[in-house]
């Protein structure tokens, strides 16, 4: 392991490097991403219309598809990692999603205690 030391201006820090995707050829990745998003949407629609599983399993299934869809949008279309320096947006977005999942998850969780309310 390397000895810990304060980074100086001369040191090579990959984290601080600019990162951009090469986009010289036709963006087939966007076409594939678009096709993928259509497939995910239609699968979710079909699964619910056909009552493919039990309601609880179906809800988990379509939520999983939605998360995949979101990851696809962020990765393929939003150039999530692109930045001239550190990708601060990943840290911010991570914190935002952490709070979002906590807020929604705990709201649902507390509503499961039906004894005192409803």
């Amino acid at each position: 392991m390397s000895v810990h030391r304060a980074p100086d201006a001369e040191e090579h820090l990959p984290y601080l490097e600019a990162h951009f995707e090469s986009e010289t050829r036709f963006p087939w990745i966007k076409v594939v991403g678009y096709a993928g998003s259509l497939v995910l949407t239609l699968v979710a629609f079909w699964a619910v219309s056909a009552h493919w599983m039990s309601p609880t399993a179906l809800l988990a299934f379509i939520l999983g598809l939605a998360v995949a869809q979101a990851a696809l949008q962020l990765g393929v279309f939003m150039h999530l990692r692109e930045s001239r320096g550190p990708s601060w947006q990943i840290a911010g977005l991570g914190l935002g999603l952490f709070i979002a999942v906590g807020l929604v998850g705990m709201s649902i969780w507390i509503m499961l205690f039906k004894s005192g309310v409803s």
Binding site: W88, Q89, G92, L93, L95, G96, L97, I99, A100, V101, L103, V104, S107, I108
Partner: peptide, 16 residues
């Protein structure tokens, strides 16, 4: 991007 993070929180509240 930071504005979008705050918008995530708005929609998280409304989803809750």
């Amino acid at each position: 991007w930071m504005f979008l993070v705050t918008d995530v929180l708005i929609f998280a509240s409304l989803f809750s």
